[in-house]
Design a protein around this nucleic acid. Structure first.
Lengths: 229, 229
DNA sequence: AAGTGGTCTAGACCACATT
DNA sequence: ATGTGGTCTAGACCACTTT
């Protein structure tokens, strides 16, 4: 049988496991290994590139390939829109807009995202429900200089999260996960006692180099985010 | 100039952006597209496989390639060992073992991980520090049937997290992120008021189909976990 | 200047899923 | 049975890094 890049990956992992190639080892070059494994160089190359993605190997031109000193696992999870999150759990999703105001960018926001002084900002507060239970409280700020269409959209039916993804799907961003004690206000919306520990996410989004939106998301008590590694 | 798979990716993304290929569209086959783009089929293939990894396209043999209906972004972050996390922030890492006991697996643990009744378990409590500040409290349970070597290791110098990665680097597992109100006990260790919202992680680890370890990790108050997408 | 990985090509055959 | 993606090969040239 021909050698598959999967076979090559498996064998390389084996050699690392059984200490033929301990952590930190420099491996032979692609051409040499390909010859030893009896496969084409392209096959060896794909296997090794895959292992770089998996966080197992490091490669540098001229320097060669080595086994990473510490094998950090790559955890991965997908960020979907809230509605899909809820519906995937089998519950009925509903949404409600709490507040909508257009204001100049406050100072604290200008420290977080790159907007001009007095740039027009749309500030929205809304709730997402899973069945009858509160699921997430969303506090969102949209840069109207970048997304002027938001000015004319009422956000009564569709949440800003879902609307924005439809409008400008190709953005980069940052996610910050943390834990927050529920304020009186948020506690009321999420039907939890004040000071309850809430899982929260801050999300910042850019389009090219322009700041699109900043959002603080507070999940209902006991919310868990799971990922396999 | 020759067409690179990066060029192909960029152009495909452009066509999705400008609605040449709206969400959900079925794309032409590889051979046809490769001809149109003026590149080899292998190049087109690599570009498209990359876009599948990026969560943009879906491919099925015979059925063909289509733009995903909803573009869920893949957030990725690497799980390193605590010491490296701390040292990467520029602080000095230190560690201390609080408690070490060997007991039969309690019932609640047997519900979480797959261990035999009365299987010997090593239970460890420890603290990780960033400089003089508490960084993480770790409550860990190790299955001695799978990792018998832990029986003879004292964990005074090296934490179970780091030790386990050295011993059995190739494991699979699950991570569960949540927020917890600090118990009296944990609050003391993390030098935070009782009920402070703490970012916490549960980690379950398997080797093949055998349960290796279960850990509850509580980070110091205001801890943030960041990832770019 | 030289060595190593990065990528492209053209062609071939395989594997899976649908018809 | 057929069409589409999945992968392997052999060969070539390029690009980055270090010497």
């Amino acid at each position: 049988m021909r050698i598959s890049y999967r076979d090559v990956k498996a064998e390389i992992l084996n050699r690392i496991r059984n200490n033929t190639w301990p952590l930190g080892t420099n491996l032979p070059g692609e051409i040499e290994l390909a010859k030893e494994f009896g496969c084409a160089r392209a096959t060896m190359n794909r296997a090794m590139r895959d292992l770089v993605d998996d966080g197992i190997l490091e490669r540098k031109r001229k320097a060669g390939t080595k086994v990473k000193q510490s094998l950090v696992r790559q955890a991965q999870f997908s960020i979907s829109i809230v509605r899909e999150e809820v519906e995937q759990s089998g519950a009925v999703y509903s949404y409600s807009l709490i507040e909508r105001e257009q204001i100049p960018a406050p100072a604290w926001l200008r420290e977080r995202i790159n907007v001009a002084k007095d740039a027009p900002i749309l500030h929205l507060k809304c709730m997402h429900y899973s069945g009858k239970n509160p699921y997430q409280f969303e506090d969102r700020w949209i840069n109207l200089d970048v997304v002027p269409a938001a000015k004319d959209y009422d956000f009564e039916e569709i949440g800003p999260n879902e609307w924005l993804i439809q409008q400008i799907p190709f953005t980069t961003g940052e996610l910050v996960f943390s834990a927050t004690n529920a304020s009186e206000n948020i506690a009321r919306f999420l039907k939890a006692p004040v000071d309850t520990a809430l899982f929260s996410v801050e999300r910042t989004t850019w389009l090219e180099d322009k700041s699109v939106t900043y959002a603080q998301l507070y999940f209902a008590r006991d919310h868990k985010m799971t990922t396999s590694i």
